[in-house]
């Protein structure tokens, strides 16, 4: 495997050599293909997405395929995770009505979370969600669900009312508010859903890269070692911080989805 396939920066550059600091930038998110299947080229982020799928399915298959009434440790862990989404997201946002959407929310939460977690897994160290196509794909699914449920619950006219006309406001306000609501519900929401996740993971990865590259780049000279050590400490701190952000972003994505579904299910006023 060459560096172009798995690493995001030049490794042969050090402090006081003639090359400058190889700061991470957009090319840190572009990888050469790892391998090809037929004519299809698979790069590192794609491989991580496939791996995420396999890991999620494998883990929950092992835990839930033959569930026991008295759970083993493995099943118990999976149950706690599942219960977190089912109770903490679906039940919290929608109550009993949310039960049919639990599979969607569970899939979203774990898919996003595992794709995020790759950012701090040694050798992978790249959040698949920092490639915008993956958050966009998920946001597309959420958007389709949102639209479908809105029109299924309220009919065509009621659905449009539900999307554009929030209830309980003075009549004059609607002149301004209706277009804003329409744009917000139909265009802004899927966009922000995508960008929030993408940008958080993108920025987190850049931040980690700055200090990781800094640690490597400043290593070698006496004075550089101090910089290097500082940079390493920052890397460790940021890794812990990123761990938190990864889970938080997965949670936010799921909660927002649940809240959109909940709004779609509301009867038009």
């Amino acid at each position: 495997m060459s560096n172009d396939q798995v690493l995001a920066f030049e490794t042969d550059c050090h402090l006081f050599k003639d090359c400058g600091f190889p700061a991470p930038s957009e090319w840190s998110f572009i990888f050469e293909p790892l391998f090809t299947i037929g004519s299809f080229e698979v790069n590192k982020p794609m491989a991580l997405v496939f791996l995420s799928t396999v890991i999620i399915c494998g883990f929950f298959w092992a835990a839930f395929a033959r569930p026991k009434v008295v759970p083993g440790k493995f099943q118990l862990v999976a149950e706690v995770l599942y219960d977190f989404v089912r109770r903490g997201v679906a039940r919290e946002t929608m109550g009993k009505k949310g039960e049919p959407y639990v599979p969607l929310l569970v899939s979203l939460f774990f898919f996003v979370w595992i794709m995020n977690i790759w950012a701090i897994i040694p050798f992978a160290q790249f959040p698949a969600t920092s490639i915008i196509a993956y958050p966009a794909a998920l946001a597309l699914i959420v958007w389709c669900t949102y639209m479908y449920l809105t029109f299924r619950t309220n009919g065509l006219v009621g659905g449009i009312r539900n999307l554009c006309v929030p209830s309980g406001l003075p009549k004059g306000i609607y002149v301004i508010l209706t277009p804003i609501e329409f744009i917000s519900a139909v265009f802004i929401r899927p966009l922000t859903l995508t960008v929030r996740l993408f940008a958080n993971m993108f920025a987190g990865h850049l931040l980690l890269l700055v200090f990781i590259i800094g640690t490597w780049y400043t290593l070698g000279t006496v004075v550089g070692t101090f910089y290097s050590a500082t940079s390493l400490i920052m890397t460790l701190l940021l890794t812990v911080f990123e761990m938190f952000i990864q889970a938080l972003q997965a949670y936010v994505f799921t909660v927002l989805t649940a809240s959109y579904i909940s709004q779609a299910l509301e009867e038009a006023h």
Binding site: M46, V49, A63, S107, A133, Y134
Partner: peptide
């Protein structure tokens, strides 16, 4: 292509959860 991959992978996960694992658990 990446959107398609994302959709397919999500589809697989959703299908496995929806059809088999969540009813079971």
């Amino acid at each position: 292509p990446e959107i398609v991959i994302g959709l397919i992978c999500f589809g697989v996960i959703f299908f496995v959860f929806y059809k088999k694992l969540l009813p079971s658990i």
